[in-house]
Design a protein around this nucleic acid. Structure first.
Lengths: 342, 342
DNA sequence: GTGAATATCCAAAGCGCTTTGGTTAGCTTC
DNA sequence: GAAGCTAACCAAAGCGCTTTGGATATTCAC
């Protein structure tokens, strides 16, 4: 059923039917009711292409995810963020356009999305410290919100981030308060903005207690289980850490594996604190959590970031928006006092 | 830059410019070169809405994901499937439209996607045994491919699936060959088609050896870590299993936690086999895998399913397509002979 | 040299909406 | 009862492309 047929059927012009459905005041209440009823009955909904061609609005938001070329890996956090954002879009009548792209031609995809007018705005995922995408999108004139921050960027832009620095500062303090002095950092890739900030927090906390950072206690790579395992195993063999700070639940699992493989008990011989993105499949509804963690729901972040972006799309001149979320430090079974004499 | 300006700048008609760019033969090679060069120089690409309004093709594929209302959980498998599919779309010039939807108004979303002509085809995720979506989509006349199968469906439809039945049949046999007799199944939700098939495989293997299935050794729920833990703990306390079959790596981690909490050693006292979707962040490049698993890359499944759908979109009358992938049984450190005297 | 075939280009219609700029009829107002 | 409003409707333009159905010039066959 198209507008033409529907209006013919009703004996009205296309104009009137269109305006009736779009809530204009220059159509009588009686007619509107008739039109709405007929539209419902015939399951009429305007062709989205025609509509957005006429209005200029695509009613869609783009998400571009780069799949790490090294491991062909998709960050598991991504799915939850998307789910959160998707809820917001659905409620607002927007759609989500997803582009999966190899790292090398990211710019091309952004440009394409903009110039073919497929989306009204974009979410930028996985920002690096000096990510060129912010400048690119500013040039393209497309509203966008960064999930995370781009520290090297000097001009204002919109972002939503977790206070990674403070989260890792506090986590480190927490371990220090337990008497740990040899705390290892099993971080994400440190060209990523969030990982850099976490390292800052870690180093900052050590510094305030006058503890020197040891390169042998710091690793950085893509947050897989195997990386956590490998890094922790090497450190346990060579640098005698009594505690670990892991960048994700996944890598924390690897750390734990290395700890147990060495015959050590997590929470007694070795403590582990991890960042936890509150992914559904890892959270226990009631029980005491396994891992002590700095926790922040990435799904909620998705909801909020999407909301910010929609605001921005609807009122572009209102300027950039920022929002900083705080992670909660939740205590689980993976931490305890530093072993005596360590 | 729009077509109108570009053609004015070139002193050609919009027709000729359009046809030059779309590779028609009725434009001279010289002109085509001029046009292509100018398009490149001015970064011209046709407005996608206008184009798809004119051609009738949306050049987009829809993916609808239901977020489990119970746990607000997104299946982690989903991200990898999407990534695989996304690669295929990118190569073919298609886009991906993602809808996140609460279970209750799935039908509305499908109908909407179809009638507003936002997509040329759909991938159906997470099919249930008697999923009504197949019939709905057939009615709507929109090409679609199911990731998985819908066993209750009698008419032909397109799908791509892993041979879940055989995978779990073989996994069970593998454990039986090791002398295990009390094998527990920690399955996914058994209204889901894949979970039902896995149970079939498990029961089938037991039956061929004349072993009676025990309800106390079978659990079924959403595949979280905590569920794996809870189910395994209960079974270990009450039903003395010597081996577990887990539905996903995530729940296998929970099973393992329960095993170790009881002071048992995985691979010696208790064996675990899991299904492994080959997600990037859990796979170790070289090392011996921790878990013995029936392995099948869900990312590859995404690539293939997307390819099937694009074929279908481009040649709709060629009828339904099916493809069954076999999982590989990879042996890790989590399995061994049944303990003596068990 | 002529009719037919071929190569190259283009005007205009059409995709299905929204929006602009009316028109018409009925009511007020004084 | 004429001017001015208001309420309710509509024709046509426009969004930016593709495609149809020519038109014109050139080449070819004989």
């Amino acid at each position: 059923m198209r507008l033409k047929e529907l209006s013919a059927k009703l004996g009205l012009s296309q104009t009137t039917v269109s305006r009736a459905l779009n809530g204009y005041s220059d159509v009588s209440e009686d007619t509107r009711k008739r039109v709405v009823a007929a539209a419902l009955r015939h399951d009429y909904r305007p062709d989205s292409r025609a509509r957005s061609l006429a209005t200029g609005r695509a009613m869609a938001i783009g998400h571009v995810i780069g799949t790490s070329t090294r491991h062909e890996m998709v960050n598991p956090v991504f799915a939850d963020f998307i789910a959160g954002a998707g809820e917001t879009y659905a409620d607002a009548g927007y759609n989500m356009m997803l582009s999966v792209v190899r790292d090398d031609d990211e710019a091309r995809v952004y440009r394409d999305l903009a110039v073919t007018r497929r989306v009204d705005g974009l979410i930028v995922h996985g920002p690096r410290i000096d990510d060129p995408r912010v400048a690119l999108l500013r040039d393209l004139g497309l509203p966008f919100v960064v999930h995370g921050r781009v520290s090297a960027e000097t001009l204002p832009y919109s972002w939503l981030d977790v206070n990674n620095r403070r989260a890792f500062f506090r986590a480190t303090e927490f371990l220090l308060d337990f008497g740990h002095r040899r705390i290892a950092l099993v971080n994400g890739i440190e060209t990523m903005d969030f990982a850099m900030r976490r390292r800052d927090g870690y180093l900052g906390a050590l510094a305030t207690r006058g503890i020197a950072a040891e390169p042998a206690l710091m690793a950085s790579d893509e947050m897989t289980e195997h990386y956590g395992y490998r890094a922790a195993r090497a450190m346990l063999a060579a640098a005698a850490p009594t505690a670990f700070l892991a960048a994700s639940l996944i890598s924390a699992l690897g750390v734990r594996r290395a700890v147990e493989e060495r015959g050590l008990v997590m929470g007694r011989d070795v403590s582990i604190v991890t960042h936890d993105d509150a992914l559904g499949y890892f959270s226990a509804p009631d029980a005491v959590p396994v891992f002590t963690a700095t926790k922040s729901s990435v799904r909620e972040a998705g909801r909020l970031a999407a909301g910010m972006l929609l605001d921005l799309v609807q009122a572009p001149k209102t300027g950039p928006r920022q929002r900083l979320l705080e992670a909660v430090l939740t205590v689980g079974q993976s931490t305890g006092p530093a072993p005596y004499g360590s």
